[in-house]
């Protein structure tokens, strides 16, 4: 199943209990909203949902700082 921004935002709100508003361009890590534990969860979510393998070296702000970046990364790797 291809990952969508809506599904990922839903996951952040409902599973990771993030209270704040999240738009596709909201900075998640560089803003301090999410921590390393949340990052680990997102990686596992991507691996399960999008069926991709996330290489440790790919875990960068460029690929992971916004919902849009994460979705683009997942699509490129699928």
């Amino acid at each position: 199943m291809p990952l969508t921004s809506a599904a990922l935002i839903h996951y952040l709100h409902d599973d990771l209990n993030i209270d704040q508003e999240i738009a596709p361009e909201t900075e998640l890590f560089s803003s301090g909203m999410l921590d390393s534990v949340a990052m680990t969860n997102i990686i596992m979510y991507l691996e399960e949902t999008a069926g991709i393998v996330v290489r440790p070296a790919d875990v960068t702000l460029e690929n992971f700082d916004t919902v849009k970046a994460i979705v683009d990364y997942a699509h490129a790797g699928a």
Binding site: F29, G32, S36, T60, L61, F64
Partner: peptide
């Protein structure tokens, strides 16, 4: 380093 991401 406030961003606890390994690459950062």
């Amino acid at each position: 380093q406030p961003v606890a991401m390994p690459s950062e």
